[in-house]
Computed example of a mutant assay.
Amino acid sequence: MAAHATRDSARGDGEICRDRAWLHCHAIGVASGGGGMKRTWILTAIGRDRPGIVAHVTKVLYALGGNLEDSAMTRLCGEFAIMLVFSAPGLVTAKRLERAFRPVASRLGLATHLKPLAATAQRSTTRPRVSLISVYGADHPGIVYRVAELLARSKINITDLSTHRTTGNRPLYHLLLEVELPNRLDPARLERRLKTLGRRLGVTVSLRAAETTVL
């Protein structure tokens, strides 16, 4: 046990949370505190990866009676990025939140941004059709732009995007997108358009429906 603990303590939060570690924390209940109606906020924090970032940031939320509702965390080139959606008692103002996060941000070298989340943005009344698009081939400029442009013209919303580039004499590029398809859009037609674009770019493109995950 001691050996495992020593290894984990030497790893950064980004390494521990790698591979698109989406931490959907709907089931994590922290002290709710008083203050009547709650407000919802989104916090972003970026800084050099090191152990303890997640613990220090969420400790601030806990101390203020906040509830962590959703989050995404990843590491890119040694930098650790966090996006947190959380609710807090109505008496917890933006100034109080900023004041509470300031010592942690200073100690860990984090650049933070806090924004209130509008009530209309918190819930959607319709269930979108979620699909996954995979793009794979030789790396060259413009792959993400050309695919994103095609999707934008079709009014398709990108909800998640990740990329991976291999090293070597002939680097390969893998782009994975999670998208929401409008109800009127024909997936087969979209796939044909994507494959046509893929041939122009010299990459392989596939489209499939995303599996529903129950937490």
Rank of each mutant, 00 (worst) to 15 (best):
Ala2Tyr: 10
Ala3Trp: 06
Ala5Cys: 09
Arg7Gln: 14
Ser9Asp: 11
Arg11Val: 00
Arg11Met: 15
Asp13Arg: 11
Gly14Thr: 07
Asp19Pro: 01
Ala21Gln: 11
Cys25Ala: 11
Gly34Gln: 11
Gly34Lys: 10
Gly35Gln: 01
Arg39Leu: 12
Thr40Ser: 13
Ile42Tyr: 03
Ala45Met: 05
Ala45Cys: 07
Ile46Met: 12
Gly52Arg: 05
Val57Gln: 05
Thr58Trp: 03
Tyr62Gly: 08
Ala63Thr: 10
Leu64Cys: 03
Gly65Ala: 03
Gly66Arg: 01
Leu68Ile: 03
Asp70Trp: 03
Ala72Gly: 09
Ala72Leu: 10
Thr74Met: 12
Gly78Ser: 05
Phe80Leu: 12
Ile82Asn: 01
Leu84His: 09
Leu84Asn: 01
Phe86Asn: 01
Pro89Thr: 07
Gly90Tyr: 06
Arg96His: 09
Glu98Trp: 05
Arg99Phe: 10
Arg102Gln: 14
Pro103Trp: 02
Arg107Glu: 13
Leu117Tyr: 03
Ala118Ile: 04
Ala119Gly: 04
Ala119Phe: 05
Pro128Asn: 02
Leu132Ala: 14
Gly142Phe: 08
Gly142Met: 10
Val147Tyr: 00
Asn157Arg: 02
Asp160Tyr: 11
Leu161Pro: 02
Arg165Thr: 12
Leu172Val: 05
Leu176Val: 15
Leu176Tyr: 07
Leu181Gln: 00
Arg189Asn: 04
Leu190Lys: 01
Glu191Lys: 12
Leu194Gln: 04
Thr196Cys: 04
Arg200Ile: 05
Ala209Ile: 07
Glu211Ala: 13
